[in-house]
Write a protein that binds this DNA or RNA. Structure first.
Lengths: 215, 215
DNA sequence: GCGCAAACTTGCGTGCACGCAATATTTGTT
DNA sequence: AACAAATATTGCGTGCACGCAAGTTTGCGC
């Protein structure tokens, strides 16, 4: 059920997708993100420029995809893998940390930090967790069909986004007056505290689900 | 303090901004969203095409702006206007409903429903609440400087987005198996129930803030 | 194997977003 | 009132996204 689509076809598609995003990243690292034309990427991957655009709808998307890859679906899978009796909030936090903590290509992340457009694309990519996550959460809550799971998933995605945003943000300015702004800690910490703010909502949803009969 | 920028300059800018978005909407209604070129909009507003692009970074954005306008900042203002002693979750819900319930140009909304690209832009526009809202929430929580307010604001924005998405979604298909999917009620109801899922998180943040000394 | 239908790729054309540098307008200052 | 600094507007050029209508490949039943 994971791959309904037959064989060779899907296989080839995945291959070109990978070829494209890796070419994109490689060229971006090599020549700088602004000195890479779409045509170059397409050529490097051995497809027509038009085909490139069938896979990615912006240059930045392709570059960033080399880092984010299938992280989104993995988060959902990681959540589903946790024992059903663990607290939803905890399971979620662990699942997310597990995916965002693994030290992906550090060089690439540095590159992304550099360009505003790439940062933007990187943050947007995080939004892709929403749908898989909504499904996974809904399942945990007993397939309510309610939009609650969607809201929670969207909120979690938003929280992740905020955490990533803080993390990417160059420590830049000499801290605004009052010294209130924390110099942005490690990513795991940022993620944890962002998600902590949502924990009560997750708990509440879980509790309601348990009072309802499981299907 | 609301408008630091002096007078004539900002006034003119606002004027052309309004002219642009209204021209965009009018032309879109008149000729259909796909039969409006950027040059037409610019000409109708009496500015160069290049200037148009200094105000809006996509055709859809301009059209949608005619409906969403300054709704975002108003939500924050509406929140700030509520008495500080009301429950944060309630104040927020009221503030949002207040802004999204007023029957804006119905004709335009119908148009937006029509085109996928416009729907997309409309949903994206809702994300603009995030920043003003974060500021307003942070103030209610006692200017913590913590990212908690940001996370909550982002979550609220996400919830609003989900509600709008359900609302825009044409009742289309004959309901999936089991009859679990509700035929998308009224917008106020959708917003209310979406925000209800976040209420526990808002309560918790508020409670923590009250235990901390106000600055 | 054969051939048809569905799915993917490609080239072309159009409209668009946006950086850049020159020009025009506004504003605060003397 | 005149000037200089700040800020907006405009034209131009480049690269890009994407609809469309061929052409090509893959999958499947016979």
């Amino acid at each position: 059920m994971t791959t309904r689509r037959t064989g060779l076809r899907e296989q080839k598609k995945q291959a070109t997708r990978v070829a494209l995003r890796e070419a994109a990243l490689r060229l971006a690292l090599q020549h700088g993100p602004d000195n890479v034309r779409v045509d170059d990427i397409a050529e490097a991957a051995g497809v027509s420029p038009r085909t490139y655009n069938n896979y990615f709808s912006s240059r930045e998307q392709a570059i960033v995809a080399a880092v984010t890859a299938e992280r989104e679906s993995r988060v959902a899978a990681a959540l589903a893998a946790r024992p059903a009796r663990t607290r939803l909030a905890d399971a979620l936090t662990e699942a997310i940390l597990e995916q965002y903590t693994e030290p992906r290509d550090h060089e690439a992340l540095l590159l992304i930090t550099t360009s505003p457009t790439l940062r933007e694309a990187f943050l947007d990519a995080a939004a892709a967790v929403e749908h898989p996550l909504a499904a996974a959460i809904d399942q945990r809550l007993g397939d309510t069909g309610t939009p609650v799971a969607r809201v929670l998933a969207a909120s979690v995605a938003a929280a992740v986004r905020v955490a990533l945003q803080q993390w990417l943000q160059p420590p830049a300015a000499p801290l605004t007056a009052g010294g209130l702004v924390v110099p942005s800690g490690s990513l795991p910490d940022l993620l944890r505290s962002a998600l902590a703010a949502l924990a009560p909502a997750l708990d509440a949803a879980e509790e309601q689900a348990q009072q309802r009969p499981r299907r």
